[in-house]
Amino acid sequence: MPALSIVIPVYEAEDYLPGCLDTVIGDGAGGDALEIVVVDDCSPDGSRAVAERYAARDGRIKVITTPANAGSGPARNFGLAQANGDYVWFVDADDELKPGAVERVLAAVAGPRPPDVVLVQHEKRRDTGAIETGELPELAEHCPADPSGFTLAEWPRIVDYTHTPWTKVSRREFLTATGLGFPTGWYTDIPWTYALLRRAERISVVTECCYQWRQRAGSSITRTRDDRHFDVFTQWQRTWDDFEDVDDPGIRVALFNHMVWHLLLVIGNTERVEPKQRRAFFRRTSELYRRYHPGPEAWQPAAGVTGLKQRLLAARAYLGYEAFRQVYRIAKRVNRSGQPGRPAPAPEPTASEVEASSANSSMGAPSGVGASAAQQAADESPGLPAQPTLPAPRVP
């Protein structure tokens, strides 16, 4: 029986799958301890043919096909049912593993007390070539427990690590025993990840980089305008339903903080939510904010830009939120051009830019303009003073 099964759901990945498989098999990486399950989700392109060519050369690769196209979540479930490894790692077909990743994971699960879940460090490579490193090593430096074996209750802030399935390697018997699977729709990794972390009796981390997320234009839902981004509310509701009987205040506060950060990230990304849908998305976000707020004694808005947005959510002040966004965009143009009369074009602020602005205690706006937006927010959300609490997670 192999020690590790890598499950790769495939749909319209003909151009990327060879690069993915090359990094998985490496120079015989893992040897007989490795199994690769390629799940053809009824892809209409030549993805299956690519997988079969690799399977003909490497006996550790098997190719299976779903009964019907169902999306990456159900395809992962289908692959899990066909996997034989002690551990399972879900890898996306358009991403790549870093050199030595398989060996590092095998070493992490080979100890006398095998973990239920291993979290692995990742990096994001944008289509521009820019690389951003994941935050797992930084988080691990502040782990209040043993990073080689802990529970969610011992380290609630681990929820801030990206909720993508490809940063988790899970013990297969643990997964099957708990019945955890991916639901349908978009953002299915949210309820799966937090249900996984909640149930794990032993979690460990690998802080050396193992995975490269290749963010490509047009190939990721994070860069696709579609009404299916509203699925994020269904997935977060599923998560809270699952945590209904969890009374640990540390866990609930950390999960709430991460949810608010994530929903503000989605609505703030102009490549996701259509402008005509922004009001409805804001209102849905505000509903979840108010429903699951752990109380003012447990959690209050952060400082700076982030806290201002959070207070606008609390007040359901969509017009104030949109006014602030416009102020911020104008300020960025002025700052980048250095000529207020001739602003240079600027994209919508990214989450990292917003967080950097917050960290510097600056609104990023000309004197008086940012102050007006802040005052409007304060007027619309009385009784919710801004003060630093949990810092916002870094962008995955």
Score class of each variant (00 low, 15 high):
R316C: 10
L265S: 14
A392K: 12
V369L: 15
I131T: 08
C143F: 02
V273I: 15
D22V: 01
H122Q: 08
E35C: 04
A314T: 09
A317K: 10
W89N: 06
A110L: 09
R126H: 14
C42M: 12
R225Q: 08
G341A: 13
S372L: 15
R113H: 11
A177P: 02
A298C: 12
Q375F: 14
G31M: 01
T207R: 05
R329G: 02
H262G: 05
V63N: 02
K276S: 14
R283Q: 09
W213A: 06
F174D: 03
P114Q: 15
A145Q: 02
A298E: 13
N257F: 11
L175Y: 02
G304D: 09
T151G: 06
R325I: 05
R225E: 06
G149I: 01
W236N: 02
S5F: 12
S204P: 02
E348Q: 15
G26W: 04
K276G: 12
D22P: 04
A51C: 00
R171L: 05
A49N: 07
K124W: 13
G79A: 02
P9C: 00
W261Y: 15
A315F: 00
G134A: 01
A177R: 14
A68V: 07
P18M: 00
T176W: 10
A49Q: 10
I267W: 12
G129D: 06
V10I: 05
K124Q: 11
S372T: 06
W155Q: 04
D22N: 11
V246L: 00
A392E: 11
P345Y: 14
I8E: 00
D27S: 09
V232P: 05
W213C: 09
A365N: 08
A68L: 10
F230T: 04
A101G: 00
A29T: 03
G268K: 04
D189I: 07
L312Q: 13
P144E: 01
W186V: 03
L264E: 10
G364Y: 05
F174Q: 07
Q82W: 13
R238M: 12
R311I: 10
N84I: 09
L4R: 01
G250M: 06
C42H: 10
W89V: 08
E208R: 05
G111N: 10
R278S: 12
V159E: 00
R126S: 13
D231T: 07
L139G: 06
S352K: 15
M363G: 10
R171S: 07
D231W: 04
R214P: 01
E348G: 11
Y318A: 03
A51G: 00
C210A: 05
E244I: 08
L80N: 06
W155T: 06
A217E: 12
L390W: 11
E96A: 14
F182T: 00
V334P: 07
T222Y: 15
F324W: 14
P112C: 09
D41K: 02
F281K: 01
L197I: 02
I64W: 03
V260L: 11
D226P: 10
A315V: 01
R113W: 08
V260Q: 09
W89D: 04
P301K: 13
W240G: 03
S372E: 08
P349G: 12
A75T: 05
H142Q: 11
R214N: 15
W186C: 04
A386V: 10
T184S: 09
G250S: 03
W261D: 11
E201P: 09
A302E: 14
S219F: 15
